[in-house]
Amino acid sequence: MSPAETSTSSAVTLNINGEKHTLPVDHRTTLLDALRERLDLTGTKKGCDQGQCGACTVLVDGRRAVSCLQLAVAAEGREITTIEGVAQGDRLHPVQQAFVELDGFQCGYCTPGQICSALAVLEEHAAGWPSAATEDVRPEAGPPPLTPEEIRERMSGNLCRCGAYVSIVQAVARAAAQTTDGAKEQVA
């Protein structure tokens, strides 16, 4: 047990984009609000604050999660990657580059969440995870190819009101094809 007991705030150390930040947080503070209001990492967006849009998607221990339903105090000890940690210096990640080139966004507000989600989609697919678009989920069926239909389903947790889905799917497909695993899947 931690010693916090009945107190309603705690000092937490959050590991974000490889950097440790120690700050006192009200237990009510979500990871999303901690990022935006306390750490000035405003790239992670608040679209609904209810887990119903995906705009606040970040990577927690390498897996995508909505930061609006993640309490900051419960995120201690986890490795968090936000959109600010995706590019390497001035070099955009291939997913980011594809979003720019194929116009995978309009207003840009859902975009950081889309990109974080897309990064995870590539990982999940590489790990052989099936999706609701996978006709046969049994392991003997083998990993599903990353078809447009698979991308659509896997990216459906990120709503885009501008209606950029068509180019988002193209951007994810292009980024997937640029990774070695992705290229193999495309051929297969």
């Binding site: 998607t57 999660a65 995870a120 999706s131």
Partner: peptide, 12 residues
């Protein structure tokens, strides 16, 4: 399970 929620929510 895969028919429920979204990839993000299923991870949590």
């Amino acid at each position: 399970v895969l028919a429920g929620a979204s990839g993000q929510l299923r991870n949590m």
